[in-house]
């Protein structure tokens, strides 16, 4: 909000305090928080209205869905399902982070590695990797391994390419500075290139997490229904739509919180340094 002192306003532009008062109210009305609440209200009301119409027997209203959500939260089925979904997700993301950042950094500091490894990942970044899921099932069966690998193939390309570009974008003058002060190659990589690249690497992790969520849910819907995927498909098959929608709502909420959390960590780390990812 912009603060205007009354004296300045009345002297220079003749705006009277009453006008200012109105401006404050208007400011409050378009404050981000007010508007965020307003849109949530509008969206959920529209959802409720469409549910009551009803647009489709398979479209429960907001209230009905929230009641189902509360029921499932109370009996613990939602939490246990989310925890099962999180297993392949967290494992897959951890593998993707370690391997992906490693490969990306290797590509960033070595021309040969770049030449060898960058092209397949550039293709993967553009390609619909989900098409490979049936193949993973062929090779690794319908267990946890396939699901972890699904998360990996979805999340890895963006993590690799972000890490790689981040290292490549180290300002040339910082590297020259390191050389002119007699830094060894290892020192320049560890003390200059990696810290310089870290915001973009972190942003890549965030994007990878978003892609990993898509993969984890896809794996549960396509390979074998477990966790949230099981709640979705089971409730769909018995036409228990409020529960189905509640399960979907919960996993989207979880992913939003997860990614928001990563963003908060990111901001906390890099704000002090005046760097944005």
């Amino acid at each position: 909000m912009t603060e205007v002192t009354p004296s300045l306003g009345s002297r220079k532009t003749g705006i009277r305090p009453a006008r200012l008062q109105r401006n404050r109210l208007a400011d409050l009305a378009i404050h981000p928080l007010t508007l965020r609440l307003a849109t949530a209200l509008i969206l959920f009301s529209a959802w409720e209205y469409a549910g009551r119409l009803p647009v489709s027997p398979a479209f429960p209203g907001f209230v009905e869905t929230m009641i189902a959500f509360a029921d499932m939260a109370k009996d613990g089925s939602l939490l246990s399902a989310l925890l099962i979904t999180l297993q392949p997700l967290v494992a897959g993301l951890a593998i993707s982070a370690v391997v992906g950042i490693g490969l990306g950094v290797a590509m960033g500091i070595s021309r040969f590695t770049e030449w060898l490894i960058a092209p397949p990942f550039i293709v993967m970044q553009a390609a619909p990797m989900a098409a490979l899921i049936p193949l993973l099932v062929f090779a690794y069966g319908i267990g946890l391994a396939s699901k972890i690998l699904t998360v990996c193939i979805m999340a890895m390309p963006v993590i690799v390419l972000n890490s790689y570009l981040a290292i490549r974008q180290t300002p040339a003058s910082l590297i020259e500075m390191g050389r002119s002060f007699l830094g060894s190659r290892a020192q320049i990589i560890l003390k200059i290139m990696l810290p310089s690249a870290s915001p973009v690497i972190f942003a890549g992790l965030r994007l990878g997490a978003a892609a990993g969520f898509i993969g984890a849910i896809l794996a549960e819907l396509l390979i074998t229904p477990t966790g949230i995927g099981d709640l979705i498909t089971y409730n769909q098959s018995i036409a228990e739509y409020p529960k189905m929608y509640a399960a979907i709502f919960s996993v989207i909420a979880l992913s939003v919180l997860f990614i928001e959390g990563l963003g908060k960590i990111e901001a906390a780390i890099f704000r002090r340094e005046g760097r944005k990812a």
Binding site: S173, L174, E176, K191, P195, R275
Partner: peptide, 27 residues
């Protein structure tokens, strides 16, 4: 020889102290 850069070449993630000490840190 010590170099002073046109764009300063300071490390944005490091404090003033660490930036100034960086040449010695590398040694």
């Amino acid at each position: 020889r010590a170099f002073v850069f046109q764009d300063f070449a300071l490390m944005p993630w490091a404090s003033v102290l660490r930036n100034v000490a960086f040449g010695l840190e590398l040694r």
